[in-house]
């Protein structure tokens, strides 16, 4: 019984860590989709970029770990602004097919670039000593790094929610998600709002990729392999919502971890089947607005 209980706690803990990471990465996609109606399948590229920035910083430079995390966020956000201004913005009014193809093209290019620079092996995560080892909590031992990861993700999520609910930027985002034409007519500069929001979402993906590098290995095919999970988070959670994707991400985190632990021979099979069944039941997702 005690063995089962401790494995249950362990699965819940690791599921929570994975779910939080998945949310920090995917929330940008959910917002981009809700705000701009842009199907950015290349969202995982930003997470991978963040992951590589962290792993290379730790491996090749003396940048301290927290600074490397900040760097992953800032550099990815800045890079995404360049992409958004130069390329994405041209396709806001294009059809869904163009957006899908364009972003698949970006994925292929990013995979190739990553392979050229970093090789095909997964990037090693060299953590500083103070974050290794175990951390005692409620009479149990937990890996310190994951406790840290959950804490940082929690803070980021709280900050994001606060930002959307309480700041001027958040009010503009909410207005534009509800009705873009109306938002424009009351003088919101949607162009700038898009860029800013896109940068924030991409930066969070970069941070998520970096934080989660130890859970989801950073390798060139990362954006291809992780894509389906981001899409599930957004589709199940509901586009343009903040709360829905968190529930969806945590559900995936827990169930994926549990399945890997207890039924490893089935891989992600049940997650896909459960997702299909869930959307059969609620096509608009758990928290999607019904039209």
């Amino acid at each position: 019984m005690e063995a089962f209980l401790s494995s249950l706690v362990s699965v819940a803990f690791h599921g929570l860590a994975y779910g939080m990471i998945l949310y920090v990465i995917s929330v940008g996609l959910a917002v981009t989709m809700g705000l701009m109606g842009f199907a950015n399948l290349a969202h995982g590229v930003f997470a991978m970029a963040g992951g590589y920035i962290l792993t290379s910083s730790l491996q090749h430079t003396s940048i301290p770990f927290p600074a490397a995390l900040v760097l992953a966020f800032v550099a990815v956000a800045a890079g995404s602004v360049v992409l958004e201004r130069l390329l994405y913005a041209r396709l806001y009014s294009a059809g869904e097919l163009e957006q899908v193809l364009f972003t698949i093209g970006l994925i292929f290019m990013a995979v190739a670039v990553a392979r050229l620079i970093f090789g095909t092996l997964q990037a090693p995560v060299i953590l500083p000593d103070y974050i290794k080892g175990q951390y005692a909590l409620f009479g149990r031992e937990f890996p310190t790094y994951r406790v840290f990861l959950i804490a940082v993700s929690g803070v980021m999520i709280a900050a994001l929610w606060f930002g959307v609910e309480r700041t001027r930027w958040g009010a503009m985002v909410r207005a534009a998600v509800d009705n873009r034409a109306m938002a424009q007519s009351v003088g919101i500069n949607t162009r700038r709002l898009f860029t800013l929001t896109f940068a924030l979402g991409s930066g969070l993906a970069g941070l998520g990729g970096a934080l989660g590098a130890e859970i989801v290995a950073i390798q060139p095919t990362y954006p291809l392999e992780q894509l389906v999970f981001y899409l599930i988070v957004v589709a199940v959670g509901g586009q343009g919502s903040l709360r829905g994707p968190l529930v969806a991400a945590l559900l995936i985190g827990f169930s994926d971890t549990a399945l890997k632990y207890w039924l490893p021979q089935f891989g992600a099979f049940f997650i896909y089947v459960a997702t299909i069944a869930l959307l059969l039941w609620r096509p608009m997702g758990l928290f999607g607005r019904r039209v």
Binding site: M33, L227, L231, I232, I276, L279
Partner: peptide, 9 residues
């Protein structure tokens, strides 16, 4: 996006 995700899944 939901349709895309389902085809992929």
């Amino acid at each position: 996006l939901t349709l895309l995700m389902l085809t992929l899944a």
